[in-house]
Amino acid sequence: MLDLQGVSKHYGSTTALHPTDLTPASGKTTVLIGPSGCGKSTLLRLMIGLIRPDAGTVRFDGTALGAENVRAVRQRMGYVIQEGGLFPHLTARDNVTLMARHLGWDRARLDARVAELAALVQLPEERLAQYPVQLSGGQRQRVGLMRALVLDPDVLLLDEPLGALDPMIRSDLQADLRAIFRKLQKTVVLVTHDMGEAGYFGDVIVLLRAGRIVQQGALHDLVRTPAEPFVEAFINAQRNPLDALGRQEG
């Protein structure tokens, strides 16, 4: 579905991303992980065409992304950022339906889709009439996910979606999110800086460092056969959550 070939990005003299190839597996969840500033968000923005690569091509469903098709392509992708990126002047419901209304969906269709998504993300329906400031962080994130899913996109891109949540809510939402991803079978690319979260979500984990992919594979590949000392160091730095995960899965 998504395919990046030789894609690179510079900001002035800083190289946000060196020439990179990446093909997130269709219908699976790919997790981008790495230290802050390593280029995770840049990679995600390139996928949805929010920024244009200096070199290389991003393909969606076989077609190179360009100025002429980028808006159409975005309607087939959902994008969720930290805090949900909800528009504060719109109710939760209006946030969710904004794009669908722009495309001329009728009332019945909107209502049905909103009800369906609210059930999926387990958001109480009465919350939909409220504004973002009236919602909790976790509820905002659920609304953000509904908004990303409303047009039933092929691809879901999430940039640290759980980054701003406190631990209890976070683990609830982690479980719900994974269930949703499994159920919907969409191509998901999720950014996190938390190794535990990466292992929990990721069918494939892509570890970045300073604008380059250092290693990609399943969690156990990274743990057992680190490609370079950095991989081991990065994993060791986040040992505790991994141990917990090990017990749980063992």
Partner: peptide, 16 residues
């Protein structure tokens, strides 16, 4: 910025 980015990512045309 994040709000502008979210609006852009929805695929809304500039006037909308």
């Amino acid at each position: 910025g994040p709000l502008l980015e979210s609006a852009e990512a929805l695929g809304l045309p500039p006037m909308a």
